[in-house]
Design a protein around this nucleic acid. Structure first.
Lengths: 219, 219
DNA sequence: ACTGTTACTCACCGATTGGTGACAGACCGG
DNA sequence: CCGGTCTGTCACCAATCGGTGAGTAACAGT
């Protein structure tokens, strides 16, 4: 039997061996990072661990320790990689829109953020992780996300002056909080505070309500 | 040495033995439920398991299987116990307030809900659990919470007619979503979307913004 | 006082977790 | 060709997890 395995290894037919791990550190590092991101996006942070990542990446967990210094470093790498979120989420037709007032801007940003978060499972998991735990890992990841989001907002916002007499920081925090919780609750259970959110029609109603909310404070 | 322990047991001085477990099924059941609730409220759902609950309750985990049928039954018992949330959270001065419009009502409800959620760690953990997982346990708990919240809203709401032309279900879902996420994020990291939420002054600003948001849609 | 039921504890199981040290093979510079 | 470094694999560790079966001590009924 020892002979058989040796012969198989020498042959490298690849039929039984789906992917022969070649000797390429860069590729392995990328595979690990990709596996971690996918695992986090699909399974959530509950079963996110060294063993699970290594299993999905198809390599030994020892390599995660060697290349990323353990789970913490890997999470940090995910956070650093989160910067790519910004350039993927900038629509091209910003010039074609006429954002005359702060209300126009916030309405557009809210809807864009809603849509962006709705089809980005990784980002959703990170947000859910943020409100569930307070470890060093999460703190780093949260910081990276906040930074990426801030950068995104900067890119989207023109040079519109915010209205006076309104605590825009607090109001906007509430608006974005509502969007995040809505999307998270919908992704988890298909509804939020009794409001069913499954098909496109449900989401249209939510978007209309969101517009109304934004227009209510920002004219 | 065997003599020593025997003597100690007979003496029941209680100095070395903090709490001698007496033979009382009802008390034990209550101790388990209380331990589970406290554990969930303090530690979160991450380290919530049979062993941890039994450890905190100071009894053997076997009793949890016997009395509650495992963790699932225990979680269900927590959910059933959640009904007590309603009667604890109904202010006594409802008669003293004059809620003339739907806007008055929603403003008051929003602020009450914000305050209630802010000093109820167990409820916070459950909400965080809801948006993080989708197991049967969480689903049951979520249903119980939703029911309790609905009952609370019914008790608080008079017979005010909602305004026409507004999707109150969607708008209210957004409002409550914003409150929940704000409180959760604050409890986890002390801030929400860049808005620091630590001392009372911060929360006053948030409450003002919330009022403005509600008044914006409901006049 | 004997008996059976109830309340409770203990010891063990297999599986999985995070983590580490030792080893095998490919590659490269000398 | 040889020795060292780099990449990857494997075996093992203690700890913890959920779960179960067997055993013990206190009580109640007769």
């Amino acid at each position: 039997m020892l002979n058989e395995t040796a012969v198989a290894a020498l042959e490298q037919t690849g039929a039984a061996e789906p992917e022969k791990r070649i000797r390429d550190r860069g590729a392995t590092e990328r595979a690990i990072l990709k596996a971690a991101k996918n695992l986090l996006a699909e399974e959530g942070f509950q079963n996110f661990g060294i063993n699970a990542v290594a299993r999905r990446a198809g390599c030994d967990k020892q390599l995660i320790y060697r290349y990323y210094g353990g789970l913490d470093g890997l999470v940090e790498a995910i956070g650093a990689d989160l910067g790519s979120w910004v350039k993927d989420r900038i629509p091209e037709d910003t010039g074609g829109m006429f954002l005359l007032t702060y209300g126009d801007l916030m309405e557009r940003l809210s809807l864009l953020f809603l849509e962006a978060l709705r089809d980005d499972p990784l980002m959703r998991r990170i947000v859910a992780w943020e409100v569930s735990e307070n470890t060093e890992q999460v703190r780093r990841l949260s910081e990276a996300r906040s930074k990426a989001l801030g950068l995104w907002l900067d890119r989207m916002r023109g040079s519109l002056a915010p209205p006076k007499g309104v605590d825009t920081a607090a109001v906007n925090a509430l608006i974005f909080a509502s969007i995040q919780h809505l999307v998270l609750a919908a992704a988890a259970g298909g509804q939020c505070a009794g409001l069913v959110l499954k098909n496109g029609k449900d989401w249209e109603k939510a978007a209309t309500a969101l517009k109304r909310l934004v227009r209510g404070v920002y004219g």
